[in-house]
């Protein structure tokens, strides 16, 4: 025997279950309770940068859309700064950089509006390509899944990104890159997330 290190043990994760909306998006569950639901406004009115829409599906191992997902996004502003004291710099007033969105109960489609983030610093003085950090919970997901969404039109930055390039299987890196389209002045990035099966999305242990 040796000394105990004395650390506490982490609380185990459990699935968010099918009714996660009651707690985190009660309007979607079918009732109004809070004055302000959190997570609807990611960038705020004053954020600089390109206004974008991000949308997609979460697909299970059978190829079916998952219709009870909740996603959270965490992102930097267009200068690559997070709204947090450990990120160097200030963000625009009202920029939170965090949001949550649920999938449509009938179709499984999800989508949110935000601004395109800038590149952010990485370790050892390198730079990360612009990206959104995503966290996915649902019934059947025992520990929330972390992934990242990168931008198709940032090919050069993506090629040098220290996270994308750490993925040994180059053919899997594309699962993290959203496709860009423009319709009537709205810029939309499409990002389908495949939990399992062909083209399974890369998920991270962070």
């Amino acid at each position: 025997m040796a000394q105990s290190l004395g650390y506490l043990r982490q609380t185990a994760s459990q699935t968010a279950g099918p009714y996660v909306h009651i707690g985190l998006a009660p309007g979607a569950a079918g009732f109004d309770i809070y004055e302000r639901e959190l997570g609807h406004d990611i960038a705020g009115p004053n954020a600089k940068g390109e206004r974008i829409r991000v949308e997609g599906l979460v697909v299970d191992g059978t190829g079916s859309p998952v219709k009870d997902v909740l996603l959270e996004v965490w992102q930097a502003n267009s200068d690559g700064i997070y709204a947090h004291p450990e990120s160097r710099g200030e963000v625009e007033e009202g920029f939170r950089g965090w949001g949550r969105v649920i999938t449509d109960f009938d179709t499984g489609e999800w989508g949110f509006e935000t601004i395109k983030p800038g590149p952010v610093p990485s370790r050892n003085g390198t730079t990360q390509a612009p990206h959104l950090n995503l966290w996915i919970v649902a019934r059947g997901i025992n520990v929330g899944l972390n992934t990242r969404m990168y931008f198709e039109d940032e090919a050069q930055a993506n090629a040098a990104d220290p996270v994308l390039t750490i993925i040994e299987w180059e053919n899997r890196r594309g699962t993290l890159i959203a496709t860009r389209s423009e319709t009537d002045g709205t810029i939309t990035y499409r990002f389908d997330i495949r939990l399992q099966g062909e083209n399974e999305t890369v998920f991270f242990d962070v």
């Binding site: 649902a138 059947g140 899944l145 993925i167 939990l195 399992q196 399974e200 999305t201």
Partner: peptide, 9 residues
């Protein structure tokens, strides 16, 4: 059907 089959990176 909702669990990734590949290891997390």
């Amino acid at each position: 059907t909702r669990s990734p089959r590949y290891s997390l990176i």
